[in-house]
Design a protein around this nucleic acid. Structure first.
Lengths: 107, 107
DNA sequence: GTCAAGATTAGCCATGTGGCTAAGTAATCG
DNA sequence: CGATTACTTAGCCACATGGCTAATCTTGAC
């Protein structure tokens, strides 16, 4: 499975999108992340696995707790694909290309 | 399944993304779209079904052929979510908000 | 050293996905 | 009318996904 496949797949689930939205406010442990969801921990861990395999989040274990945070620039492949589509789709290549360039130069 | 779920799911498959990329160049019939893929037609039709249920493409039957085209503004929910994420994530609300505004004002 | 907490693994289950073939329907062509 | 074309439907299959419980491992707190 290509990377873009994994990323889009990871984003296709509301639980996983919620985790990403939650992580915007800063990193958190697995159980902190799991707390809002009415789901057993192993089930939730699978979602984290999907997000991590897609490169959207990263984590490292500190003692017995695992800390998760957003991966830097994780959504760049998506926004690049999106920009590509929108640009050619809507015939506004110039402005979107500029946007992407700016984004890459200034991440 | 929410709409964003369906859209992201639809985009998570390379065949379906290729169809979208192909449709940027203009509408096409089912068999024209299917031609590049080494896949039986019923299998391919399922992909078209996923794209259509996600609201990414539309189609109408003319005689015995079905013509498909991109749905207008289909990717807006995605780019809105993306912009939302990137803005808060990267703390560059201003420029991204401007970008989205510009896009909405000038579609 | 014992025990609780946090995470993980193993394994089960129902359902969904993505592929196929075969057979059916509807419209055009000769 | 009959044949061909262009989809469509039905139904099968293997495998992935998303949920669970139960058991395990590791670390931190007494």
């Amino acid at each position: 499975m290509a990377n873009l496949d994994r990323i889009f797949h990871a984003l296709s689930d509301p639980t996983r999108r919620a985790v990403i939205e939650r992580l915007r406010d800063g990193g958190a442990s697995v159980s902190e992340l799991a707390q809002p969801f009415d789901m057993a921990l192993p089930s939730f861990l699978k979602h984290l696995g999907v997000l991590e395999r897609a490169g959207l989040i990263e984590s490292d274990k500190q003692g017995r707790t695992r800390h998760c945070h957003l991966a830097d620039g994780a959504l760049v492949p998506v926004s690049a694909w999106m920009a590509d589509q929108r640009a050619l789709w809507e015939g506004r290549t110039d402005r979107l290309a500029a946007f992407v360039e700016q984004k890459d130069a200034n991440p």
